[in-house]
Amino acid sequence: MNKVPKIAIRDVCKRFGTLTVLDGVSLDVHQSEVVCLIGASGSGKSTLLRCINFLEAYDAGEIRIDGHLMGYVDAAQKQRRPMSDRMLRQARRDIGFVFQQFNLWPHMSVIQNVMEPLLRVRGLSAEVAVKRGEVALDRVGLTDKRNSYPLRLSGGQQQRVAIARALAMEPSLMLFDEPTSSLDPELVGEVLQVMKGLAAEGMTMVVVTHEMGFAAHVADRVAFLDRGRIIDVGPSQQVLHESKEARVQQFLQTYHDRTNF
């Protein structure tokens, strides 16, 4: 694997006021790789994920997507300035982001939600956008809900629509921030199933999750965040079962205690 990584994160730091949330994070994600980010609440998982598509601006370090610096004009560290809105929008449209709270647009029907970015960002005609939207809905198994409004769907269905909306843009990379955390337990499976399918088709994915089963069976690698640092990263079996880090063992022990009653 000596190609340019899909995502190259180098020494990324992020502060909110005086609170250091990311404290020198480095991580490479390669083409078609699935990487899960795990760690305690407040450890900076969401912040790291949001820095990747620059929903959050990192203060120091570099994030490169296909070798291109994200969010800043590529220049020496000291004099770097944020890239133009235009450039940022261009960089973002190939990155799908799936939120914990779905963030569907409630005033648009399911198919309208999926079509909206295609019409506004890709500039497709309505006919082409409808076709693409229907293909995306078919992939998440929701063709029959195309004309419903989001608020009339179950949480699991809403999240699948959100995934379809991202997929329709044909992203080369998908970021998921706890996609199943606000779902009732019986609805988690349908969403994970869709994500598994994407992984199998070779989508590059970074997934913040508390679903250790997904991390163990679908992820190629797992990275463990603790207080803004990645303290362990490696093949999922290794991190989840053989980690030498006390923090990781403790976290997983708590997880096991909770899930095994």
Binding site: D85, I95, P106, P117
Partner: peptide, 15 residues
């Protein structure tokens, strides 16, 4: 709702 706006900007929609 901040999230809906964030979703839109994550796709690269203009302000």
């Amino acid at each position: 709702p901040k999230g809906q706006i964030e979703a839109a900007s994550s796709f690269g929609m203009t302000s």
